[in-house]
Design a protein around this nucleic acid. Structure first.
Lengths: 133, 133
DNA sequence: CTTGAATCTGTAGTTGCTACAGGGTTTATC
DNA sequence: GATAAACCCTGTAGCAACTACAGATTCAAG
């Protein structure tokens, strides 16, 4: 049985975030002391670790909710879990390609500028142009 | 002189977004008709194109504000502009490397799962583990 | 029993928009 | 000149995923 502060330290998750997760139904309401302080058991800790790890891996809270529903339902299959994961991997792939394109464009633009103390800049000029290509 | 709808069509920027940009000081307040409708001139259009292009290239509104201040000041130098751009490129680089790491980890985890109809999944197991390495 | 640390609830802020509601204005048509 | 349709106005609330308070209460140590 640990307090919210203990849980926070164990998981590296902010106290306010823990309460937030409870509020939006990601974490279950824990029992309380007489005075109203939250007390967590092993199951809660496990669940929060799951949530944190999922978030670290870029799953949205909504995806985390889906994963938790599967786990909670107890009769989830690999197929379902893998589907969520693969969809997420697709998102990442898209983001990567978007970012790479961005980087290339920006590098091209930036390379035209010598960064001198001239009062005219090819970067600014480029920003005043609508998208080419 | 175009109305806000015309400006929206010309730039591809939502009407509410245009008003939002005005509210937060990114766009200048345009003159109005007697009835209070906004009327934009060439300068406004140019400025909005600049903002849109900058946003497309991933600059935050705060960075856009910085760039606009430089442009407005009229005595900006290449050095200043390039500094903003290079900082932004660093951000992108970091995001890219974070995303690539994420992708790798997630792929590793996902590859251990065959997606069958088994009621036990290595992905779920991995999510219950704290971060390794 | 007192102090100080921890916790409580509730609300507001962040970024960059988007989506209304409930009005007023402009323009086209008759 | 009336009317309708299309447009525009302000103001507010919502999204994700937290974070940061304020002001009150409770807990643990000495």
């Amino acid at each position: 049985m640990v307090t919210i502060g203990g849980l926070s330290k164990q998981t590296g998750c902010n106290i306010e975030t823990i309460r937030y997760y409870e509020r939006i139904g990601i974490l279950l309401k824990p029992p309380r002391t007489e005075g109203g302080h939250r007390l967590y058991e092993r199951e809660h800790i496990k669940r929060l670790v799951f949530v944190r790890r999922s978030r670290e891996l870029g799953f949205s809270l909504d995806e985390v909710r889906t994963l938790l529903r599967l786990v909670d339902g107890k009769r989830y299959t690999c197929r379902e879990v893998k589907a969520v994961t693969e969809r997420h991997l697709e998102d990442i792939k898209k983001k990567l390609s978007d970012l790479r394109r961005l980087q290339k464009t920006l590098r091209d633009i930036s390379s035209q500028c010598e960064g001198g103390s001239v009062p005219d800049c090819p970067i600014i000029d480029a920003l005043f142009e609508e998208k080419r290509q």
